[in-house]
């Protein structure tokens, strides 16, 4: 057991929260897409990678950092729309399993394309605001980590406002709740599905860009991140955004503490252990519900 003081725990907590914020962004993208289109998009991690990679390329081409970031998000949104139009929409009558396989295929294809374009080299973005780390409750926090948490917070607020208070957001939610009813009321579900895909892609791209200075960027970074985002989405039952936010932050903190207090080799295992636990607990929880609700039992 290492000899940790209180400030060390704060340090780990902050590291966990910043990593967790990234997982939350990715998880929310997954949930948005799932709710409107019914697709569990396992290619979500590739949007993260694309966001980071495009930003790096633009920045290296000489654009200012902020412009690179914004243009990159726009590019990834376009990619998201294209992916939706080319792979999801034509197969919208297919079964869930087929859909998942399609997204896995997309993920592999995008990764292959990225390998072809950028090669295997790892790239880096400069810190958004370079400078010495900030002291916080005895711990030191890199400025980039503050950027990550801040960006995640702002994005969450924007997403919340969009879904709760704008007509368009309400239309997307209506589609998620009852597609047919929404259609009758004049909402175009295909447009909403495309919108959801674009939004999901944007969330992931933002995640990729803000972590790029901290963790470096390579063509294969999306896989692990996408899986972590998936774990987070599952924690929210694939539908519950607030639960996913809490789950994502918890996962980040859990990873940080387990690798410090137990052994660092366990870190990735923790996420999937959490996934197993959540799935098991959910299954057990749902059983009495089903018993009490005859409609559900029939299905």
């Amino acid at each position: 057991m290492p000899n940790f003081g209180p400030s060390d725990y704060v340090q780990l907590l902050l590291a966990g929260l910043s990593t967790g914020s990234i997982y939350v962004l990715i998880g929310l993208g997954l949930i948005t897409i799932y709710n409107v289109t019914g697709v569990v998009n396992l290619a979500q991690g590739e949007f993260v990678m694309l966001g980071a990679m495009v930003a790096v390329s633009l920045y290296r081409a000489g654009l200012p950092l902020a412009v690179s970031g914004l243009v990159s998000v726009a590019c990834v949104v376009v990619v998201g729309l294209v992916v939706h139009r080319l792979t999801i929409r034509p197969a919208r009558q297919a079964t869930d399993v087929t859909m998942i396989i399609i997204t896995i295929g997309t993920s592999i294809a995008v990764r292959g394309l990225a390998l072809w374009i950028w090669g295997t080299t790892a790239y880096s973005l400069p810190d958004f605001s370079p400078g010495p780390p900030v002291a916080l409750w005895g711990a030191v926090v890199g400025r980039q980590r503050l950027w990550i948490m801040g960006t995640a917070g702002v994005v969450l607020l924007l997403v919340h406002t969009f879904f709760q208070y704008t007509l368009l957001g309400k239309a997307v939610r209506a589609c998620a709740i009852n597609r047919r009813a929404a259609q009758i009321l004049g909402v175009n579900p295909e447009a909403m599905a495309a919108l959801a895909y674009g939004l999901g892609a944007a969330l992931s791209a933002v995640a990729g860009i803000v972590i790029a200075p901290l963790t470096l960027v390579s063509y294969d970074m999306g896989l692990t991140l996408g899986l972590k985002g998936f774990v987070v989405a599952i924690m929210g039952g694939l539908t519950n955004m607030p639960a996913a936010v809490i789950g994502g932050l918890l996962l980040g903190v859990l990873e940080a503490f387990s690798s410090a207090l137990l052994t660092s080799g366990l870190k990735d295992g923790i996420a999937f252990l959490a996934l197993l636990v959540v799935l098991l607990v959910r299954t057990i929880q749902l059983r009495p519900l089903r018993a009490a609700w005859p409609l559900a039992r029939r299905t």
């Binding site: 060390d8 780990l12 692990t224 940080a256 503490f257 690798s259 410090a260």
Partner: peptide, 24 residues
């Protein structure tokens, strides 16, 4: 006074570095 490992594709080593600070 301290032995620690990290993975070849680890992205966050805060935990290990925090241990270094605490190890003297």
């Amino acid at each position: 006074v301290l032995e620690e490992t990290f993975g070849a594709d680890d992205k966050d080593m805060t935990a290990q570095i925090t241990k270094i600070k605490a190890s003297g």
